[in-house]
Design a protein around this nucleic acid. Structure first.
Lengths: 243, 243
DNA sequence: GCACTCTTAAATGTCAGACCATTAAATGTC
DNA sequence: GACATTTAATGGTCTGACATTTAAGAGTGC
């Protein structure tokens, strides 16, 4: 692994890139220990501080983990679905909030993906998944539930639907889409949302999954999407008229 | 923004977390300049090196960018679809390669999402998207095309299909799924793949999009998925028998 | 021989101070 | 007014030191 001291890029960025490539290409395998910071500083002919900055970059992406002490060091980290999921949510949330993505576009993407899960979930959902969804519906019926808690329960409901497909890759991919929508959803939740309507649709979706009726689930997901998008449009128009 | 010097976590991780939260919650807005490294070192009562390690963590996630010079500093970065796309691909690729995700599971997730795009793409694809797909099909017909180039063209074809839906959020989400599959696909490409069969299916898909026939596109995507998964299964079985 | 304590060494985490490189604005010069 | 020079601010890098954590080894008592 070599770096170019004349490159316009930071040395720490070059070093981080070289190590990242080695991991992606399999030259460094999971749980393998990297050389100590001092050794790498020698190898790359840079100071230890520069090596450390490179390692922090990799740690921020969960590519390595560090341990202190005698047998410590930096180790190639096995990226877990949990970690990947967290990064996915953060990235998606920022992407939506920073790029003025319209509610319509985000909503369309979310429901398109969720509908892709519906047939798989109808075929494979376990009793546990169904119970989780019923529990969230029950919670959503409590009149004294705060708006924030209702939103969180809504996310949990859809998460259970997605997990029901029994495909961890699909769950990971959809997590970002569903969770990143929550801030956008909050914009309309506090004004015009009819909880009763949503609970009814959730119940119909759960019923469809219980009967393993993919078409039924799909139909009601479409209805939910249509309702949500119309709601958002109304709120936007009302705001435009007022402002 | 405060940090706890007694916390078991690294100071640089705490500082990075505090700044990240400020960005996610909107207390720091796009293109806003952070205090200089020296000022932050004062504010947090840490050394400049520690602040720098925190900033590198944020830079690795594309949350900030830095500029040198008199009016330089660290600025909150507008996360572009391009950057998010790149991170998504890296994360997904590592996730699949490090967690022994079976080809079947990854393939199912990928085609489930791609099929979700099909109706949107059939309705909205522009002439440009169609032309891009035809061009890739033409390339795939060249007998002297290397296996790597065929794979890349395959990815480009499906990317054009997804982009045809005209939803950047969907394109971003699917990019990881499609590109992350490529290394897995390579495992079978060099042995059993029939280019003719794949080119035929690609042509039928493009025809369907040209006719704006969503069902036709979906049907042939299913066929492509089935073919791909059967191919992989055969290769695995052959390997198991040989080994 | 076993269990316990102490020492030691290796590694990361942090700090302080210095210098370099880059950049734009301020200043000077014609 | 246009151009060249200086200057100050800032990130990038280096050096050397010390603190903290951790596991292994050495020593000690029974």
């Amino acid at each position: 692994m070599k770096i170019d001291p004349q490159s316009p890029k930071d040395l720490s960025a070059q070093i981080a890139g070289a190590i990242r490539d080695a991991i992606v290409e399999g030259r460094l395998i999971v749980d393998e220990r990297l050389p100590s910071e001092a050794e790498m500083a020698d190898q790359f002919s840079v100071s230890r501080a520069t090596v450390r900055e490179a390692l922090k970059r990799l740690a921020a992406q969960s590519l390595i983990r560090t341990q202190r002490g005698a047998t410590g060091g930096a180790f190639v980290n096995r990226l877990s679905f949990e970690e990947a999921y967290g990064q996915q949510v953060t990235t998606s949330t920022l992407l939506l909030s920073m790029n003025a993505v319209s509610f319509d576009v985000a909503c369309e993407a979310r429901y398109a993906m969720e509908r892709a899960c519906a047939p798989l979930s109808a075929a494979r959902r376990s009793a546990d998944h169904l119970a989780a969804m019923r529990a969230e519906i029950h919670r959503q019926r409590q009149p004294d539930l705060s708006d924030e808690a209702f939103c969180a329960s809504d996310v949990a409901f859809h998460r259970a639907l997605v997990d029901g497909a029994g495909n961890p890759v699909l769950s990971y991919q959809l997590a970002g889409a569903v969770e990143a929508m929550q801030p956008l959803m909050n914009m309309i939740t506090f004004t015009a949302r009819s909880r009763e309507r949503i609970v009814t649709l959730h119940t119909q979706i759960a019923d469809g999954l219980e009967a393993r009726d993919a078409d039924c689930v799909d139909r009601h997901l479409v209805t939910l999407e249509t309702y949500t998008r119309r709601l958002a449009r109304n709120v936007m128009e009302a705001r435009a008229a007022r402002g």
